[in-house]
Amino acid sequence: MKKEILRFSGVKYTYHTVRGETVAVEDLSFSVRESEFVAIIGPSGCGKTTLLSLAAGLLVPSEGEVTSRGSFGYMLQKDHLFPWRTIEKNIRLPLEVKRQNTPEHRERAVNLAKKYGLGEFLQSYPSQLSGGMRQRAALIRTLATDPDILLLDEPFSALDYQTRLNVTEDVSEIIRSEGKTVLLITHDISEAISLADRVLVLSGRPARIAYEHELDFEGVTNPLKRREMNNFSGWFEILWKELNA
């Protein structure tokens, strides 16, 4: 069994506004092991994004504790590439922010982009790229600082269906071959099944872990192949029921 890299123990988080307080997550406990791909699904508005912000340390829990060993890369619903920067400079952004903008780090990021088919677009501006390519650039930007844990916040939901299948395929391959640990948040059940090693199902607000499943696809990690396998629809049915319970 691999080492734990991220752990939530008894985490509670409360939002305060003038009108009152909302408990977004409560008594939330789970852990993620190294190089594991964990998907979290939950009903909409149940505090999924809060959970990622807690993991990344952007929010401090009201109760309980979040512990992690390693650095984070955060990927959002939209690519959020900066339109005034070229793709190369967009990819370099986290290096600049983290003051790692050295020739070696830059070269590493550029090589990563070349390796995953963005080589010819390095000097292009985001507006010149297709939605799928932009999301791929966003992933390379996330990987530029070589983070240990990737936090993906519904990274495919803004894409159309065709592009989404392709980008999911892309991202899965890149992440697996770079051996990253992933925490994916999504409301798309089939996406979770096609990508993850383990799926956590959240309850409605305040969110806590309602169910947990280790997915067994006989070692197949390719999302499209998984979709064609026999037990795919079985898992879908189980998770569908649990989500609507």
């Binding site: 912000s53 990344a56 952007l58 984070f72 890369g73 955060y74 959002l76 619903q77 939209k78 959020h80 900066f82 952004l93 986290p94 922010v97 983290k98 600082t145 936090l151």
Partner: peptide, 10 residues
């Protein structure tokens, strides 16, 4: 969201 992205980079 771009603010969130930058904050997540530290």
């Amino acid at each position: 969201n771009k603010l969130l992205l930058l904050k997540s980079m530290g």
